[in-house]
């Protein structure tokens, strides 16, 4: 990773904002771009570390993934599931129409 490759510009910010589903006002895009570049520049220090023989560490937990038995222990709580919904109808969540 070289710092230069990872420098973001406004089109990159647009792309990342789109992937993140974040509406970013035009006026704040330049500042955001600068912030992201500063942060990415800062984290680029990791380039110095030789990690060629190092395995990635995803979790510090020492134990194995616990398994649960196959029993129906939950559900039938439509009222709780829908309680905080901004819009619902007839037991469904409602969203603006999706075109497939």
């Amino acid at each position: 990773m070289s710092k230069k490759e990872s420098i973001v510009d406004i089109p990159t910010v647009n792309k990342i904002a789109r992937l993140s589903r974040l509406n970013i006002p035009e006026a704040s895009k330049q500042n955001l771009t600068n912030d992201l570049n500063n942060i990415l520049g800062f984290v680029a220090q990791l380039d110095e570390v030789n990690t060629s023989d190092v395995k990635p560490l995803a979790s510090v937990t020492g134990h194995k993934l616990p398994l649960r038995s196959d029993k129906v222990t939950d559900g039938n709580i439509e009222d709780l599931v829908l309680k905080n919904a901004p819009e619902s109808s007839g037991g469904f969540f409602v969203v603006p129409k999706v075109i497939e």
């Binding site: 990773m1 490759e5 990872s6 973001v8 990159t12 910010v13 990342i16 904002a17 992937l19 993140s20 974040l22 955001l32 992201l36 942060i39 990415l40 984290v43 990791l46 570390v49 990690t51 190092v54 395995k55 990635p56 560490l57 995803a58």
Partner: peptide, 25 residues
């Protein structure tokens, strides 16, 4: 935004995977 960027295609190894390796160190 930073999180999305470091996981995105083409940058995952350079940022996220690298960070996980240094985390082990």
């Amino acid at each position: 935004m930073i999180g999305t960027y470091v996981l995105s295609s083409g940058y995952y190894d350079a940022y996220y995977l690298k960070a996980q390796k240094v985390r082990r160190l």
